[in-house]
Nucleic acid binder design. Structure first.
Lengths: 240, 240
DNA sequence: CCTGGGTTAATGTATAGACATTATGCGCCA
DNA sequence: TGGCGCATAATGTCTATACATTAACCCAGG
């Protein structure tokens, strides 16, 4: 039995090792933002590998936004920016099941109402309008209102949304090419308060998501979570 | 003058062209999820390039999550997932200025109160406690409450937060290695309502952010936005 | 029928070299 | 002094090749 070292330095490929080395220099402050890092051929010499390998390592760092590469000018350390965060917006059904609770989608009355103005859909297309509540162990977790474009997803008309939530069904059956998420805070109206068992005027987190397949609209969904029991969390970098 | 084609097929490198070709087959449904795509050497033959070039293209697709690569089994089209969304959480000062409005940070009374329990900071460290309101054209835009770890950032004690917001100042002076964002909805209390000129019990979007440099805490900030006028938007894929 | 192990097809990594591309920065010339 | 243009240093791409690694597959043996 070898040493049970928990460290992940088992047998890292060169380009990952080089990447880690550079990353450590940047994050450790040895190479401050704006400074030039050694040229590829210099690093290749230092690490005793070919320039291609160094280039692959630096390309990964450039993709990650840690450095900026410019021909002739060299590679410089990027100024850290709180540009964007990777936010986990999982499928509600999967999230509830993953937490060990029983999941159920309670479907409410639906209609074939016109698509919502917020989604700027053409008013002429045929849509399936769904309303329902996601339940975790029988407790309301989120209220969902969804419009599905029947021109793009005709088989949605025959789907059984009692077994799996509309979101999961769509993920399983319809590939999407673009999506947009919008997060805001709203005050629960009477209907929402009733569905989620909330007091009047409770603050709620509202997630609206639109998805496309190419130029075609697939679905527009508005999910409303109780503000005091749900939050979205995004994390960056190594664990603290 | 050549044809004013808007299409971006000007002079794409081979690996990007190959990537686009594969991507089109996947997104167009010709290669459905779970199906195998041709082996690298086959694609190399088809495109008349080396296997390295094909591999680079497929690696990019694998990084993007469109395909899964497995030795011997080949490369298969991944099942699309709403894994995570890239959310734009820009610096408030930069955001307001970018929108063409006048920015001002109105600093409120501060204290050296103990760090907030929510940030699970040690209670013994010296902190700088800041409170203020971000103003866009004089109108309250967000209420901010911030704690800065003076052990990690001693020069924050002497900084002038009238010129630039605390967030911008920190971004410019302190590199960070990890960050965590938490988004929730809250009901405005009396103080928040007063600062943001909101009616009582208005729903607000609450963004809490913690940043670290290595193992050291840098700052904990809680920003509160009027729920009806602010939202966070994240977009994926090509523009609609 | 099941199990084990070897074969082998596919990806993963790496190299040395070549040429393309680009913008920096210096020198030349007006 | 000023501006123009070219040499050059750096990254960007690509090739042909080599070997490592992995796991699907198949077949022999129980």
């Amino acid at each position: 039995m070898t040493a049970p070292v928990a460290a992940p330095l088992r047998k890292m490929p060169s380009y990952q090792l080089i990447r880690s080395e550079i990353e450590a220099n940047i994050l450790g402050g040895i190479w401050p933002p704006g400074s030039r890092i050694p040229a590829e051929h210099q690093l290749a010499g230092k690490f005793g590998c070919s320039r291609m390998t160094v280039s692959k390592a630096i390309s990964a760092l450039a993709d990650a936004g840690l450095v900026l590469r410019r021909k002739r000018a060299g590679t410089i350390v990027a100024r850290p920016r709180m540009h964007s965060a990777v936010l986990d917006i999982p499928d509600i059904q999967a999230e509830i099941i993953a937490s060990g609770k029983a999941y159920r989608f309670m479907r409410l009355r639906e209609s074939t109402a016109a698509p919502p103005t917020a989604a700027d859909w053409p008013t002429t297309i045929a849509v399936l309008h769904l309303r329902g509540v996601h339940l975790a162990n029988g407790v309301p977790f989120a209220f969902e209102q969804r419009w599905i474009n029947l021109a793009t997803v005709p088989m949605a008309a025959d789907a059984d949304f009692a077994a799996s939530s509309p979101g999961s069904w769509l993920l399983d059956h319809v590939p999407w090419t673009a999506a947009e998420n919008r997060i805001s805070a709203i005050t629960a109206d009477a209907a929402i308060g009733r569905h989620l068992a909330l007091p009047a005027n409770a603050a709620c987190l509202c997630v609206e998501r639109r998805t496309w397949r190419g130029a075609d609209h697939i679905t527009f969904v508005r999910q409303i979570f109780p503000g005091d029991t749900y939050d979205l969390t995004a994390r960056f970098g190594p664990p603290a």
